[in-house]
Every structure is written in C-alpha cells, then in structure tokens.
Amino acid sequence: MSTLVARMAAAPPRRRAILPGAALAGLALAALAALPVAADAAGLPFLVVIATRMMIFGLAALSLDLVLGYGAMVSFGHAAFIGLGAYAVGILDAHGIRDLAVQAPVAALVCALFALVTGAISLRTRGVYFIMITLAFGQMAYFFMVSLAAYGGDDGLPLAGRSTLFGMRLIEGDPALFYAVLAVLAVALLGLRRVVASRFGRVLRGSRDNAVRMQAIGVSPLPYRLTAYVIAGAIAGLAGVLLANQAEFVSPAYMSWQRSGELIVMVVLGGMGTLIGPVMGAAALIALEEVLAHYSDHWRLGLGLMLVAVVLLSRGGLAGLAAKLGRRA
C-alpha cells in the first residue's frame, strides 16, 4: 500500500501535461516516415534534404540540452563536437576507411575524449567563465582544423562518397540517409529521456537546481556534470558523422563559434530541459532560415525578432508553447 502511494507520488507531476502521449509521438514518427514518399510524389525532393538537416541539428541540439537544460552548463563550444565527428569521417575516408562500423565509434570516442579533457578543465568554473572557456576550447578545435593542411585546412575536405555500413552502401540515396538519421534521432531521444529520469539524471537535475544542497546530502556534482558533458559530446559527434555524410564534405565551418551559438538558440527556442523542444527548435530555426532567406538577405533580422518574441512570450520555448496550447485544447 505504502509503496503504491510512494510510486504514485514519485511520478513527476507535470510530465503528462507537457509531453504528448505515446500516441502523438507515434503519429509524428509515422508522418516523418511518410515524408520521403510524399515529397517524391509532390516533386519536392529537396524537402527530404532539408528535413534530414533539421534532424541532424536536432540531434546535436538534443545533446546540448542534456548539458545546458539539465545540467545548467552553458557550453558555447558544442559545435566543436559536430566538427570533430565530421572530421573523424573525413580523415578516415581520406585513408580509405569508409565504413560506419569504424567511423561512428571512432567519432564518438574522439568526441568523448575531447569532452572528458576539456570538460574536466572547464567544469572547474561556472557561469560566464564556463561559457568563455568552452568557447576557447571550441575555437582551438576550429583553428586546429583550419591549420590542418593535410586534410584540406580552411578549404575543407571532400569525401570520396557516403559511408558504408558493414560494407553495404545503405545511405547512398537521400531518402535512405533520411531514415538512418531519423532512426538515430529517435534512439537518442528515447535514450536520453530515460537518462534524465534515472538516478544519474536526478543527481544532474538536483545539481542544476542547488549544488550546495547536493553536497549537503553527500554528493559532489562534478563527476555527474562531467559525465553528462561526455555523453553530450559523443552524441554531437554522431551528429557530425551524419552531417559529413549528408554533405559528403567536411569543413572547419561546422565548428565555428557561430554554429555553437546557433545550437544554443535551438535549445532555448525549443525549450531548455525538455529534450523534444530543442529538436523542434532546430527544425524551426532551419525552416526559418530556408523561408526567410527567400525574401531577404537580411533574414537574420527577422529571425532575431521571432526569437525575442518566443523567449518573451513563452519561457518554455516551443515545447512550452505546445504544452500550453495542448492544455487549452
């Protein structure tokens, strides 16, 4: 009896209202899965390319949300992991290693290692200093790639072709790549949802809200923050692997600080600490980019205004807005 009460009491009270039910998630997944077919029928194949790009950056923004939304660590160098993941593909490709079975683990490992080293140093600081130091590490990675003449330097590095998986050319076509990206994103989203609700996630959230309280119950936040930083780095690295494959090209531009800023915008626009929000934020930002760029070269001005509106009108970002509308309906 008492355990039943405890179980009920422990269920996060607002979860059900914010997150759409499994049915809604299934519906969204089905709609996405039908997109390549629909786009092909409508004669708009570029939609698949854009949607793929949205999901790739959605994956990266999702990983940043673990750090930023759940850990309150404002990392301003997250694009470095995308770039490192992309370069893992590019450099291995240049040496004739084209299989994802090697490329993806190498990318994740390199990014995890980079996150471990830079995180161990960065996480000694908080607030503005943390922002600055992650920016500095991001820029170091950027300039390292710019100066790496053997692999294209500033000009970037074209791939010989898209990666294979266990020798099979599975993601040769854009629709196939789309499905691959969708699968990775779905697994990452579901996986991270479990992580933030786990013991680990609880400590991470507690440390975000009140680090002194955590110490007073005998928990030092640092190892948990660092672990979150490493997990996020590895996932962003996988986003880089996918990005390199989509473009069949890698470039230091993937890891510029503007890119890191855009990732933060995606997370804030979509709703920090919601996981699904940053994915929506990435999609919205890229959609705006596509649409507004049609009308004016100064499309960023319009983007800025929209961002101001969303942040002012809904603290919870797009995810918060969606929840609000859902409750009203």
């Binding site: 179980r7 422990a10 992580v195 609700a197 786990s198 013991r199 680990f200 609880r202 400590v203």
Partner: peptide, 18 residues
C-alpha cells in the same frame, strides 16, 4: 539515493525505485 548504491545508473527510472 545518495547513500545507497551508485548514482551512475543511467536507464532505470529513479522514480520507480520502490
């Protein structure tokens, strides 16, 4: 949780640990 077992557990929902 802080004094019983590791908090480096990533998948089981903590809220259902009876």
């Amino acid at each position: 949780q802080a004094r019983s077992g590791s908090s480096f557990r990533f998948f089981r929902p903590a809220a259902t640990e009876t």
